[in-house]
Design a protein around this nucleic acid. Structure first.
Length: 587
RNA sequence: GGGGGUGUGGUGUAAUGGAUAGCAUAGGGGGUUUCGAACCCCUAGAUCCCGGUUCGACUCCGGGCACCCUCACCA
């Protein structure tokens, strides 16, 4: 159970914050006047379930005892005592509902988020050993959605990619490219029953080179020379051997470039890249390993390997030892990760990492080691794996669905639909729209699901263009754009007259008014899927508004409705950009 | 075996201890098809099991069951 200040800081604060700030003084005096002691009720203020009943709700069950009456009566007393300038108060059963006025809500619409602090978000950071597959894509989509949401909320964001440029994976790739020819690779893959599928992307270096990686992995099982060859390379790379690091880079960089092309196609870009080898080269890993020796947790194994004993820190399992230095004195991946975090803290005051659930233990171990070194721990968002229906995805075994192919397929499906709907557009334009729809749908189908929930990849789900999906939102935006195009330049300076709003128009304003709250809440609770849900709801509200309210009626423009449509267009556009949906103007 | 996560209509999912468990698909019915129908409305259908705490539990605690992740001198 969380205590009150912490609870408040993590969950309560930002939801409906603007409204809470507004009503709290009046509410405090109302509570005092009916005889409620203390301020424990403040964290019970929550969003009303039904927008039709109000915006903020206060359940009154706990007051019944204190006041010696029924919860319904308590609600009535409080409601009677509460006078608000910005809205009305209604007791509904055991709840006090506070309903903001349309004037107050519409005044929220133009508010831009305040500029906020800096944050470095590290995501994806996949080994550059093969094309992006849909398992890796969850990290990239989730990470980039965090990046975009933070930017939309006013944060100064750095999107960071950690390049694993010296590990075993890259070592195998390098060895394979230097030692195997095309014929050998094909023979090995045929023998290992890994199909070589021809696709439009076969010539991309990530697709081309992954075959070498897969072949070397197969050969490794039958020929010990492979292992020793790779091990030699990896060892030298860990000694910061310049020649080896250059050869590694020659092997992986084209693969990484191919992966980044795929990411770019999805609208995902990075500001900075950091190579793992950097921390060997600059000696910082060595310094940290020395420092760890003075930790109370420090221990040395028989062969001279160093570790931290983490049992006292709550780590449980077969082994509670966290090795950070091998018997030969070299560092491990996790050790370099310590140096990496030390470095990242010099670049930003807030760190957020996006990691797969398989990194949970590792992340905890690194966190403890960082504490021992007096270095702050980063915040981490973990996501569950994306599986194939017939098992785990693996680049090594070739049991994968590549992102490039998924995006092609998504575009092809979208193209069918667009072609049907828009026979008036040239083929080139249709393709452009289909690409945007395909990419957006693919991203949204990942982003809209809670990170800790496991996903089983199914083509039908991944390519869904149905209602709870990106195309629905995009269509709503395109519709608003179409209306704008149709009416042309109209003078909107009269502004929105909020007092006249009702029904679906009022619902639309209410939805839009909470955009910044929803965005901030999704950020604070690390729940991008909640903002996706808000965006879908906005699209639904806009469609209902559109049904009930005509912008153009019998050739005459209704300026008030046009203002609302334009506000919705802008909110839809901002929302789309915050979750990585491409807000195209026609489709 | 230890640790962590997940379990909600047929299917996919949402929900700070609070109101009638929301949304989407598939099913049944209907609308407008004259600002763009990739739309809208109606209908039917669910919290894994057993206890506990509470005025109140999908939510917290305990015990089961199922699935996933993890327990390297790998990365």
């Amino acid at each position: 159970m969380l205590d009150w200040p912490l609870y408040c800081a993590t969950l309560g604060v930002d939801r409906m914050q603007a409204l809470i700030d507004e009503v709290l003084p009046s509410l405090e005096s109302a509570m005092a006047s009916v005889g409620i002691q203390g301020d424990f009720w403040k964290n019970m203020l929550s969003r009303s379930k039904e927008a039709s009943q109000g915006d903020l709700a206060l359940p009154c069950f706990p007051f019944a005892k204190q006041l010696g009456c029924s919860p319904d009566e308590a609600a009535q007393q409080i409601a009677d005592a509460l006078q608000l300038e910005i809205g009305e108060t209604i007791a509904v059963g055991p709840y006090v509902n506070i309903r903001a006025s349309m004037e107050w809500l519409s005044a929220q619409l133009s508010k831009e988020p305040e500029p906020k602090e800096s944050i470095m978000i590290e995501h994806t950071s996949a080994n550059p050993n093969g094309p992006f597959h849909v398992g890796r894509a969850r990290n990239a989509v989730l990470g980039d959605t965090f990046v975009r949401m933070h930017r939309a909320a006013g944060y100064d964001v750095t999107a960071e990619y950690y390049v694993d440029d010296m590990g075993k994976q890259v070592g195998i790739l390098c060895w394979a490219l230097e030692n195997l020819d095309d014929e050998q690779v094909r023979a090995l893959l045929a023998e290992g029953e890994i199909p070589i599928e021809e696709s439009p992307h076969s010539d991309k270096e990530d697709h081309a080179r992954v075959l070498w990686y897969q072949a070397a992995n197969l050969l490794k099982a039958q020929d010990p020379a492979v292992d020793s060859g790779v091990t030699e390379l990896v060892q030298k790379s860990e000694e910061a051997d310049e020649d080896i690091l250059n050869r590694f880079e020659a092997a992986y960089q084209p693969v990484l470039d191919g992966m980044l092309d795929t990411l770019g196609r999805m609208g995902i870009a990075f500001d900075t890249f950091t190579k793992e080898s950097r921390f060997i080269v600059d000696g910082s890993v060595e310094v940290l390993m020395d420092q760890l020796q003075s930790s109370e947790l420090h221990g040395v194994a028989e062969n001279g390997a160093h570790y931290l004993e983490l049992e006292s820190k709550g780590v449980k399992g077969k082994s509670t030892q966290f090795y950070y230095r091998r018997g030969d004195g070299s560092s491990l991946y996790a050790t370099r990760d310590l140096a990496y975090h030390q470095y990242k803290w010099t670049r930003s005051n807030h760190l957020l990492n996006i990691l797969g659930e398989d990194h949970k233990l590792q992340s905890k171990q690194v966190g403890i080691a960082l504490e021992e070194l007096g270095i702050q721990t980063p915040e981490v968002v973990f996501y569950a794996f994306t599986k194939l229906a017939d098992g785990k995805m693996s680049t090594r075994r070739g049991n994968v669905v590549y992102m490039d192919d998924l995006l092609d397929e998504a575009r092809a499906r979208a193209l069918e639909t667009v072609r049907e709907a828009r026979s008036d557009l040239p083929e080139e334009k249709l393709l452009e729209i289909a690409e945007s729809v395909g990419v957006s749908a693919t991203r949204f189908n990942i982003a809209r699901i809670s990170p800790e929930k496991g996903i089983t990849f199914r083509w039908s789900d991944a390519l869904s263009l149905e209602a709870d999906s990106a195309p629905f939102i995009m269509y709503s935006h395109a519709r608003a754009c179409s209306i704008q195009r149709k009416v042309g330049d109209v003078d909107l300076s009269e502004g929105l007259d909020a007092s006249a709003l009702s029904g679906s128009a009022a619902d639309l304003v209410r939805r839009m008014a909470y955009m910044n709250d929803e965005l901030q809440t999704a950020i604070d609770s690390r729940a991008p899927h909640n903002f996706c849900a808000w965006l879908s709801a906005l699209a639904v509200d806009y469609n209902r508004f559109y049904r009930d309210n005509y912008v153009i009626e019998e050739g005459v423009v209704n300026v008030q409705n046009l203002i609302l449509s334009e506000l919705a267009r802008e909110h839809l556009r901002r929302g789309c950009e915050a979750v990585g949906i491409i807000p195209i103007e026609e489709m």
